[in-house]
Design a protein around this nucleic acid. Structure first.
Lengths: 246, 246
DNA sequence: GCTAAATAGCGTAGCAGGTACGCTATATCT
DNA sequence: AGATATAGCGTACCTGCTACGCTATTTAGC
């Protein structure tokens, strides 16, 4: 009975069919797609209402008949960009499932490098976002965890995965902007870090950990996997503990 | 010998003392502090060069003698906002240390709710950021992990912690904006989720997990701790494994 | 001291981007 | 047919970043 928020209704295409007035020449899908294409090609900053409208051969203000504000458009983009998750393979254990899921998120987001720059406006509510949510929950279905615990595990995982992706994409962008500043990261720190004040960091620098920041793509992939496996180890222990108690 | 990037030099206050021309009436610290005060009071969106200058009783363009661009100011803000970490208590184990550290980050960021909205421009380079980095590394000093592994553990932890904070702060902001949309979250999902398409999510809804999204503050604190402990469980297992091998 | 050079502050102006408003044409409902 | 709601759009306003050039000020070098 209650009204849905406007953007949720839009994402689920639940407009009531009031059919008076001229036929629309635009659909929300057109608009969202055009915005995504621009963002893919030139980055999120290039997405202006004017650019989107131009790409569609319409005037800027025409868009406002379909979208209440640019922020709403960003919400639509954030759901559309994710597309649908590939279904989990049948009969795999939860850990393989979540690893599969996480790398699927990685792939999906890498197609739209602007994704992680979007502001977070609320809990997942669009069809694609919820499909990903469901997919991760589904990976845990045979663990015997109570539903609430599954949600906690998945929320933490999403936080980690999206955070890691955001970090790695933003660093990659910074690297593309100014490779010199990155390859000299170790050298810069060495100039600035006083071993008396920051002893642990100085030890890391002495060990030469930051001296090879050349291979950027691969390294961030490894970091991703490393942290993910740590988290999943924790989940494993958690599951053991819960099942022992019951 | 090599030149440091401009923003790094600014954050470490390493300006060479060329002393010709009028005495500055502003310092970078003044500017940064004023910007932070505005952001604290009215949010990051309220921070414009004009507002900052106005607060300092100067003209807008005067700021550009001290800061190359607004982006540079944001970088300065991001380092200044964190302040220094409280030193870890002596003689505690690594797990207590990292938990202490994580809650310290939480407290520091909560003082500046705009922090997690800042764009990430590069790896940590400012004095406060590096102090936090050092502090986390220091917590691992007696674990026997190789330096590179410590860095991996800490990077993963930072990613998780900052991601979780960002999520919870943004959700809290959305909640303040529109409490109704949140308290009805479960109801909204129920209207929109088809159990045939999203079975795992439907099960969660049936279990009523989203029916009590009232207590927001506490709940997000619990989520934070839950995910953190999962991650730390993973670190513990990792440490055991590495030490066994050596 | 005196002159040249470097620098702080600032006024103006240009440009870009979001969007309120009102008009016109069009399609549907009664 | 007339009322009504809606699509597209031109105009205009407002905010925000910042390039440019001018003036006043201080110091370096002679």
């Amino acid at each position: 009975m209650s009204e849905l928020p406007a953007d949720v209704a839009l994402m689920w295409r639940l407009r009531d069919g009031s059919r008076r007035g001229p036929k629309p020449s635009l659909t929300i899908d057109d608009i969202t797609r055009a915005a995504i294409e621009i963002a893919d090609a030139e980055g999120l900053a290039a997405v202006s209402m004017a650019r989107v409208a131009e790409r569609l051969g319409n005037s800027t203000m025409a868009l406002y008949r379909h979208v209440k504000s640019k922020d709403e458009l960003l919400v639509l983009m954030s759901d559309a960009a994710l597309e649908r998750p590939e279904p989990l393979p049948e009969g795999i254990d939860w850990r393989t499932g979540l690893t599969f899921w996480a790398s699927g998120v990685m792939v999906a987001v890498r197609r739209h490098r602007w994704y992680s720059k979007l502001p977070i406006t609320g809990p997942p509510a669009g069809p694609n976002n919820l499909a990903w949510f469901d997919s991760a929950l589904g990976a845990l279905k045979d663990t015997g965890l109570p539903e609430e615990a599954k949600v906690g595990v998945v929320m933490g995982l999403m936080t980690y995965v999206h955070g890691e992706i955001r970090l790695s994409l933003d660093l990659a962008a910074g690297f593309a902007d100014n490779p010199a500043a990155f390859s000299r990261y170790g050298a810069i720190l060495a100039r600035v870090v006083d071993p008396r004040q920051l002893p642990a960091l100085a030890r890391v620098l002495d060990a030469g950990v930051f001296d090879t920041v050349e291979a950027f793509e691969e390294e961030s992939g490894q970091d991703f996997d490393f942290g993910l496996q740590l988290y999943l180890d924790g989940v494993e222990r958690f599951i053991e503990r819960v099942c022992q108690d019951s």
